[in-house]
């Protein structure tokens, strides 16, 4: 039973790598991908903005209030709250929380879209026309994700700071000046690079894992739903694993 699961895991991973390789072959004219990339980028970027704004605003606010709650010593300056919130936002909250949320929104969308195309024979139609369906369907989504995830994460990081400052003001825990002093006192350029590496990696994971789940759907509407759920679960797990590996390797 366990052995079968392990073997199935290896088989799926091999299939995933082969699909990735195939998605970089048989390229057609650039204009075709440009149009698709634009369409996917709008869906990934613009359509996620509202959700990312709300989640980031509250994440920043809650982190500020909880950090303030834990700092009870009068010897610790208030600016420490800003430093802790800012460092957490850059290193962990913005890239990881945003990506986990987008795994649900973007990942399930990619898996269900490609899965629906599979069960309605649209992928077969592409293949019969002589078009490499893997390239046509996966490449624009992959590039949309690896370009726009970092943009969304930078935006999320900014909004977390805004949320933190607002919550500090409203609760009286820390004023904006102290908060900004905290941000500046612990800031390092590498933290931003680390955040962008994470965003790029998570974008890659979400787009490719979800595309893989959708591409190999067999059956009907029920299986498309299952593939969509699997895409979210596996992407989320892989994000957490990659999060740890990157932290261990780069910090």
């Amino acid at each position: 039973m366990l052995m079968n699961l392990i073997l199935k895991g290896f088989e799926s991973f091999g299939e995933y790598l082969l699909l990735l390789r195939r998605s970089f072959t048989g390229l057609l004219r650039f204009r075709l991908y440009w149009e698709l990339w634009t369409f996917e980028s709008i869906k990934i970027g613009r359509d996620s903005l509202f959700l990312v704004t709300i989640i980031s605003l509250f994440t920043g606010a809650v982190t500020t209030v909880q950090t303030a709650y834990q700092i009870v010593s009068p010897f610790i300056p208030k600016s420490t709250i800003g430093a802790i919130v800012s460092t957490s936002a850059i290193l962990e909250l913005a890239p990881t929380i945003t990506s986990l949320v987008l795994a649900g929104r973007v990942g399930s969308n990619i898996a269900s879209q490609i899965g629906s195309m599979r069960v309605s024979e649209q992928i077969d139609a592409l293949e019969v026309m002589g078009i490499n369906s893997a390239t046509y369907l996966i490449l624009p989504r992959l590039f949309g994700a690896i370009i726009f995830f970092p943009v969304l994460v930078i935006y999320s990081c900014f909004i977390i700071h805004v949320g933190g400052i607002l919550a500090g003001m409203i609760s009286g825990a820390v004023n904006p000046t102290q908060f900004v002093i905290g941000i500046r006192s612990f800031y390092e350029d590498f933290q931003i690079i680390f955040m962008l590496i994470k965003a790029f990696t998570f974008g890659f994971i979400i787009s490719t894992v979800s595309a893989y789940q959708g591409y190999y759907v067999r059956g009907g509407a029920l299986e498309v739903g299952n593939a969509s759920t699997r895409a979210v679960v596996i992407s989320s797990l892989m994000i957490l694993v990659a999060d740890y590996v990157l932290a261990q390797l780069l910090l």
Binding site: T25, G26, M117, S120, E121, Q122, D124, A125, E127, V128, M129, G130, I131, N132
Partner: peptide
């Protein structure tokens, strides 16, 4: 090869049972 197959496939048209139109 896959590329040579695609060149052949460009000479054929197929009507699917489900129509397979891009929705």
């Amino acid at each position: 090869s896959p590329e040579e197959k695609r060149n052949i496939l460009r000479n054929l048209g197929m009507l699917f049972q489900s129509s397979a139109l891009f929705d």
